[in-house]
């Protein structure tokens, strides 16, 4: 649990983060959105004390984060930086091993961890472990950056526009990976993004920042129904609301009993993508399959239309 209590950051006379308070529940994904320069990065960096606040405090599992030296704090909190920041003079394996090495883990444990993470991110450990970062594609570098942040099994993971530089296909893949990993480790994730689609897809709760303040901090559905200000409304995009609502849930949640013809849709797909698939296929219903390929039922146009309507 992260409790942010009236935190403020000033540089000279400008207030970059202005009296922000919010509580982030454990094992959830919180997404921070807002215009450029609104203080998202600064707010996040105060959690691991890369930036020291001017006033206010942050509690992590009840302990003030200022109770231990900054570097020790940061070894316990994963941080995936805007534009990955891999160490160019170290191999992929060494990069991922950074924090475990700093923590003094045994070699065998580190090796096992590196292998586990590379496999998890679908990079062959034997092929990618010994390579240098510049021998990887942008998407692969990005995944290694996230793997490095996860290596010491942190309870908390901070991610600053982690998928900003990726093409749409890899980006979707990386988002699915992230959701899987979050389920797997039960990590508390705080993520900054400019992409509202991504925000609605990933978030348990969304925080909207404007000029250093949090203007709304709510669950995605809540935000769609009751945008706190005009700013939030424009940010969401009034015309996008039904589709945003669909992005939140997966096809699994919308599966009905019954049979259907046509190409099957995976249960993990977002309802929004399922809608596209239905429209494109020109059908009223399509079959749904689980991760292992078993038939679960079907998803229908009418069912999705009901879910896209304004919640009562």
């Amino acid at each position: 649990m992260i409790e942010i209590d009236s935190i403020t950051k000033r540089y000279g006379d400008t207030t970059v983060v202005d009296n922000v308070s919010m509580t982030i529940a454990p094992r959830t994904i919180t997404v921070i959105v807002g215009t450029s320069g609104s203080g998202k990065t600064t707010l996040m960096r105060m959690i691991n004390r890369l930036v020291e606040p001017t006033s206010g405090k942050i509690l992590i599992d009840g302990e003030p984060n200022s109770a231990i030296p900054g570097y020790e704090l940061r070894r316990r909190i994963g941080y995936a930086i805007q534009g990955h920041g891999l160490f160019p003079h170290r191999t992929v394996g060494e990069n991922i091993a950074t924090v475990p090495t700093l923590l003094g883990w045994e070699k065998s444990r580190i090796d096992a961890k590196v292998k586990e993470l590379l496999t998890l991110f679908q990079l062959d450990p034997a092929a990618f472990g010994p390579r240098y970062p510049h021998e990887l594609s942008g998407g692969q570098q990005q995944r290694v950056g996230v793997a490095r942040a996860l290596a010491a099994e942190p309870n908390i993971l901070l991610m600053d526009e982690p998928f900003g530089a990726l093409d749409p296909v890899i980006r979707a893949k990386a988002q699915e990976d992230l959701l899987a990993i979050q389920k797997h480790f039960g990590t508390t994730i705080v993520l900054v993004t400019h992409d509202m689609e991504e925000a609605f897809h990933l978030a348990d709760k969304i925080a909207v920042m404007d000029k250093g303040r949090i203007v709304q901090y709510a669950a995605p559905e809540e935000m769609l129904v009751n945008p706190a200000t005009d700013f939030v409304e424009t940010l969401i995009g009034a015309g996008e609301r039904p589709f945003r609502l669909l992005s939140i849930g997966s096809v699994g949640e919308a599966t009905e009993a019954g049979e259907a013809e046509g190409e099957a849709i995976a249960a993990a797909t977002s309802q929004r993508d399922a809608l596209s698939a239905l429209l494109w296929a020109g059908r009223d219903a399509l079959p749904v399959v689980g991760a292992d390929g078993t038939r679960l039922g079907r998803v229908t146009l009418a069912g999705l239309a009901r879910r896209a309507a304004r919640p009562q």
Partner: peptide, 9 residues
């Protein structure tokens, strides 16, 4: 990179 070094503790 310097930032990442700080970030990893």
């Amino acid at each position: 990179i310097v930032e990442a070094a700080r970030g990893t503790g």
